[in-house]
Amino acid sequence: MTTRVYPDRRRTRPLWHLAFLLALLGALGSFAGADRAHAAPSCQVLAGGSAPQAAEAVRQACTLIGTPYSWGGGHGSAPGPSYGICDASNGAPNDCHVRGLDCSGMVRYAYFLATGADVINGTTRTQWATGRAVARFYRSQGTALLLPGDLVFYGASPSTIHHVAIYLGQGYIAEAPYSGGHVQVAALASHGDYYGSIRLYGPGGGGQPPTPDPAPGRYWVDTFANASVYASPTSTASTGTLFQGTNYVYCKAWGRRIVNGSSHNRWWLKTDPDSGPAGQWVSAYYLSRWGNDEARDNNGTVIPNC
C-alpha cells in the first residue's frame, strides 16, 4: 500500500491569512474588554450622601449576594430567609422547597440587619406605601436624586407594583430577581418599568418632607390585618385581598355592618387591593388608628364621601 504524505496546510497559508487572524483576535479582545468595562460592579455603596442607616443597609444587602430567590421567602414573623410558596401560575413551582428571600423579603432583611428593627415589612405594594418614607420620588423625576439605600420599585401604578430592589448608586441595584435566581447586582434600568423610589432615612439620619403624591385624591391609612375586599359596600362575595400595612383609599360609603365583639364599623373605603380587580371596597373596621364607625386617614383627616 502506498503511503501518501499530505503537506501541512498551516505552513502553506499566505501571510495575508495570518494577518487576518491576528486582526480578528484583536477585535475579539476589544469586544471582551468592552464587556468587562460594562459588567456590573461588585456590590458596595457606590455613591455618597446617604444616611448611615441607609448606607449600612446597602452593605448588609451585599452580604446576601448569592442567597437563593424564593417567592414568599423572608416574610415570616421575623426577617430573614425562609421557605417560600410553590405556585406554578406565578412562576414558582418549587419555591416551597427553597429557603431564601424574595425581592421584598430581601430589602426587609437588609434594613433589619442594618438597624435592628423591622422597619419595612410587607409586600412590594405595602412597602411602597409605607408611612415611614421621608422622601418619595417618581419616574418623571428621573433617577439623579437617588441615594444608596433608597428602595426602587417597578410597575405601572401603585396597584401593579411587582418588584423592589435597593439602590447602590451609579445606576445599580441589589435585587432578588426571580425563581431559580439568586440575590445579585444589576442595572436599575435592567427592568423597563421603573415606577419610583422611597427613602427611609434622610441624609445624615434626619428627615425631609416627602415629595407630593402626583395622584391627588388618595388617603393613606394603616390596616391591622389582611382584609377581604368586595365589589360594593353591601356585597358579601369577596373579590380579593388588601394586605396588612399602609394602604391608600379614595373615599368612603355607608354599607353593611362589620362586627367583632365590641368593635364595629359600617363605613366602607374604596381602594385598589393587592389581589383582585382595582376599585374594590374594604371595611373601615380594619383601620388601625380609629374606633367604631370612624373613617379617617393616618393624619386624622375624615375620608370624604364617594
Rank of each mutant, 00 (worst) to 15 (best):
Thr63Ser: 11
His163Asp: 01
Asp213Pro: 05
Ala156Ser: 15
Leu151Tyr: 10
Tyr201Ser: 15
Val98Asn: 08
Asn121Tyr: 09
Asp193Lys: 09
Ser228Ala: 12
Trp220Met: 02
Pro203Leu: 04
Ala278Ile: 06
Ala186Val: 07
Leu200Gly: 13
Asp222Glu: 14
Ala253Glu: 15
Pro277Arg: 05
Val45Leu: 06
Thr63Asp: 10
Cys96Tyr: 13
Arg4Ile: 00
Arg108Phe: 01
Leu146Met: 14
Ala61Trp: 07
Gly73Leu: 04
Gly131Val: 00
Pro14Phe: 02
Gly49Phe: 11
Thr2Ser: 15
Ser104Leu: 10
Val98Phe: 06
His97Asn: 12
Ala253Cys: 01
Phe137His: 08
Ala37Val: 04
Gly202Trp: 03
Thr143Ala: 08
Gln170Asn: 15
Val282Trp: 05
Pro79Tyr: 10
Asp274Gln: 12
Arg296His: 15
Ala23Gln: 12
Gly84His: 07
Asp193Trp: 07
Thr160Ile: 05
Gln208Tyr: 10
Ile198His: 12
Gly276Phe: 01
Gly73Lys: 06
Asn90Leu: 13
Leu146Trp: 10
Ile65Cys: 04
Tyr195Asp: 00
Gly29Val: 06
Pro158Met: 01
Ser228Met: 03
Cys43Trp: 00
Val259Asn: 11
Ile120Phe: 02
Tyr109Ala: 03
Ala23Trp: 12
Thr223Leu: 14
Ala54Val: 00
Ser89Asp: 11
Gly26Glu: 05
Tyr83Leu: 01
Thr241Ala: 10
Ala253Asn: 04
Asn265Ala: 10
Ala54Met: 07
His182Leu: 03
Phe224Pro: 08
Thr126Gln: 07
Pro177Ile: 03
Gly180Val: 07
Glu56Ala: 14
Arg257Leu: 15
Thr67Lys: 12
Glu294Trp: 06
Val259Pro: 10
Ser263Trp: 09
Gly192Met: 02
Val302Gly: 02
Gly26Pro: 01
Arg4Asp: 03
Ser235Cys: 12
Gly80Pro: 09
Ile173Lys: 10
Ala133Arg: 15
Leu200Met: 04
Trp268Tyr: 15
Tyr195Ala: 00
Asn247Pro: 02
Phe137Cys: 00
Arg256Ser: 11
Pro52Asn: 07
Ser262Met: 07
Asn90Trp: 13
Pro7Lys: 14
Arg4Cys: 00
Ala135Thr: 02
Pro79Phe: 06
Leu64Tyr: 09
His162Arg: 05
Ala78Glu: 15
Ser42Thr: 11
Pro52Val: 05
Ile85Pro: 01
Tyr285His: 11
Thr63Gln: 13
Pro273Leu: 04
Arg132Trp: 02
Cys86Leu: 00
Arg296Phe: 12
Asp8Trp: 02
Tyr285Pro: 03
Phe153Gln: 05
Ile65Asn: 08
Val229Arg: 02
Gly122Ser: 09
Asn298Tyr: 07
Asn247Leu: 01
Arg11His: 11
Ala55Val: 02
Ala231Val: 13
Cys43Asn: 02
Leu21Tyr: 11
Ala55Trp: 04
Ser263Phe: 05
Leu21Met: 15
